[in-house]
Design a protein around this nucleic acid. Structure first.
Length: 487
RNA sequence: CGGGGCGUAGCGCAGUCCGGUAGCGCGCCUGCUUUGGGAGCAGGAGGUCCCGGGUUCGAAUCCCGGCGCCCCGACCA
């Protein structure tokens, strides 16, 4: 960077911009262990807001939290053939403990289906014990070859929901319900509107019957898989020899689901809303929604503006606003402005001698509406009263802008391979086409275009006119699919 | 695992080609003056120059061997 106070612009080098913003907004830092990161208070505060909102949504849909162990016996994961095939390359395995080599290696969970279903088997005897609706907040480890802060780290934080049901229909319903919860959360809390749908066979979770996913489009027009919900059929209950007695008296394997979202969503938030000045945190996720900066030239003004700042803080806190006064004396106001803008705090209230004199407050907005100025100067009472509404409006505005950007960069009705190639190699974005269902077409796209089918879109995201031919030119379209380059 | 880049003060870097005992900016500490968009001045603290060997009177610099990190790719339920 020419000026190390400024970020590399997104247009110049999006990856560099992303790395700089994550560190300079103090979201996270590299740790001594390659592939692992330290989540700093500002980043963790955002994750905590995400957790709280999601946890409420899980509880509201009947789930309870539990906690299962970090270490899983090697033999457990080997019980489900596809599962172990899928995960083996990225497992971290503990072979020694207590100064001795272990008889059976223990793996650090990459996900917990195997151990959770094993335990479910001990707890469930009858259909009356079903459904079992469990979630856990945990860390997992997948030894990724190429880590990226938040987007792909060896260790990451997530939640994994695991449920068991007496019927396939009920389990499928649960799978879709949680996909909907994720979508709702991403739209209304992160302001990161995903498209949702089914994964193709080649992209589904190892061991699942069907995988549904939320796919969001980042500002560089690459897709981010932001959450998945799996219908596991009876695969994992069979592997764990988990059975129950049905109402009819027969012994059956339950139908299970699993679903997860992770700290990757923090990366998605960065790449959805951040700009060349820094991070933009949606109000509902911001650990601090309003920062109050006092401005003064002498001790008298200092005490007067600090007193007013405390008053403003108390008033906003009463209104349920997360507010903080930045009373640091060794920084001048400009330095504070830049810092809080870089960290993405939605609103700033500036209080100086002129405001005290006029009985007004300065409200500076992190995101400036088109054609307007950053700062407005309403009378104090009006300013304070307006803040909750301003936060709500920004929350909605961020989402609406993201929806608009997603749609502007979605290309429907593409029927020619060359056209798809042209889009993916230049602008990027979501490309909707027909697909015969032949995996060879996916393989070709991956090789030639570095693109994959992100989802077979759910009904609501499908085009008005269903494509009739496969994008390969060979055969009829079995589905409409969405292609993109992805993280 | 392939390609590229980089390891020198907390951070960002120069110095390395051409060997001579370590420097710049930011940050940090103290004081004074400042404070409405990244303050100024003065004084100050801070370094196994990634590690190990070798060459040399002398190595951040040259030679050999390691290690680590970042980026691009392969891979990524």
């Amino acid at each position: 960077m020419a000026d190390d106070r400024k970020l590399t612009p997104r247009s110049e080098d999006f990856a560099a911009w992303y790395n700089e913003i994550v560190q300079r907004a103090e979201l996270a830092d590299y740790s001594p262990v390659r592939g692992s990161m330290v989540i700093r208070p500002w980043g963790y505060g955002i994750w905590e807001r995400m957790q709280r909102a999601l946890d409420d949504m899980f509880k509201a849909t009947g789930h309870e939290n539990a906690y299962f162990p970090l270490l899983i016996p090697m033999s457990f994961i080997e019980k489900e053939k596809e599962h172990v095939e899928g995960f083996k390359p990225e497992l971290a395995i503990v072979t020694h403990a207590g100064g001795k080599e272990l008889e059976e290696p223990l793996l650090i969970r990459p996900t917990s289906e195997t151990v959770i279903l094993e335990m479910f088997g001990k707890w469930v005897q009858s259909y009356r014990d079903l459904p079992l609706l469990i979630n856990q907040w945990a860390n997992v480890m997948r030894w990724e070859l190429r880590p990226r802060l938040f987007l792909r780290t060896a260790e990451f934080l997530w939640q994994e929901g695991h449920t068991a049901h007496a019927s396939a229909e009920e389990a499928e319903e649960e799978t879709l319900r949680m996909l909907g919860v994720y979508r709702d959360f991403m739209e209304n809390w992160i302001g990161m509107p995903p498209i949702t749908g089914l994964k193709s066979e080649s992209e589904k979770f190892a061991g699942a019957v069907r995988t549904y996913a939320c796919e969001a489009l980042m500002q560089d027009n690459k897709a981010l898989q932001a959450g998945t919900s799996h219908f596991l059929g009876q695969n994992f209950s069979r592997a764990a020899d988990f059975t129950f007695q049905s109402e009819a008296g027969t012994e059956e394997y339950p139908w299970s689901t699993s679903w997860g979202v992770s700290t990757r969503m923090v990366g998605g938030m960065v790449m959805t809303h951040g700009d060349d000045d820094g991070l933009v945190v949606p109000p509902r996720l911001a650990p601090t929604q309003v920062v109050v900066v006092p401005i003064y030239r002498n001790d008298e003004e200092r005490s007067a503006t600090l007193a007013k700042a405390a008053e403003v803080e108390a008033r906003l806190r009463d209104d349920g606003v997360r507010v903080k006064v930045d009373g640091r004396d060794h920084l001048n106001p400009g330095a504070k402005f830049y810092e809080w803008e870089r960290k993405g705090v939605p609103l700033r209230v500036e209080i100086g001698p002129k405001d005290l004199e006029k009985g007004s407050l300065c409200i500076a907005r992190r995101v400036v509406p088109e054609g307007e100025k950053r700062k407005v100067f309403p009378a104090e009472a009006e300013a304070l009263a307006s803040i909750p509404g301003r936060l709500d409006a920004l929350q909605t505005d961020l989402r609406d802008r993201a929806v608009a950007r997603r749609e502007e960069n979605s290309y429907r009705g593409v029927s020619d391979w060359g056209e798809m190639k042209e889009i993916l190699e230049t602008k990027g974005g979501f490309v909707y086409t027909g697909w015969s269902g032949d995996p060879a077409v996916e393989a070709r796209a991956k090789e030639e275009l570095k693109a994959t089918i992100r989802v077979i879109p759910g009904e609501e995201f499908r085009s008005d006119t269903a494509p009739d031919r496969c994008i390969s030119g060979e055969g009829a379209a079995a589905h409409e699919v969405v292609w993109a380059r992805a993280y």
